[in-house]
Design a protein around this nucleic acid. Structure first.
Length: 98
DNA sequence: CTGTTGACCGATC
DNA sequence: CGATCGGCCAACA
């Protein structure tokens, strides 16, 4: 896959915006759905591109947000109806299917 | 141009 | 379960 294009980034943002409240998606899923070659790119986009998108609905494949944001995001998710047990979100129930 | 780093993932030990 | 490794790709010093 060639270098990342603007459309890829747009696709990622669109997908994140598509995630309804009470649901979450994994970096890998978004990367795959957006046609990215590597999940890391998704993380890179979030870090660099600070949009108004609900990035807190994006978590790792382990069912937890990134370590430094874990506490905060889990709180937000809880407010949206996503109950996390032991700092972990039940992906099987809240994972959003694209 | 080279080397590190980072919101990752999967396999393996 | 935790730790490590390799692969992945772009930004940055």
């Amino acid at each position: 896959m060639a270098p990342i294009t603007d459309e890829q980034v747009e696709a990622v943002r669109a997908l994140v915006a598509t995630i309804p409240a009470g649901r979450v998606a994994t970096y890998g899923d978004i990367a795959a759905a957006a046609g990215l070659s590597s999940p890391r790119i998704v993380g890179w986009i979030m870090r660099t591109d600070s949009s108004d998108l609900p990035w807190h609905r994006v978590i790792t494949a382990s069912g937890k947000p990134a370590p430094h944001l874990a506490t905060r995001q889990l709180e937000r998710l809880r407010a949206e109806g996503v109950l996390a047990t032991d700092g972990r979100v039940p992906l099987a129930d809240v994972r959003h299917a694209f």
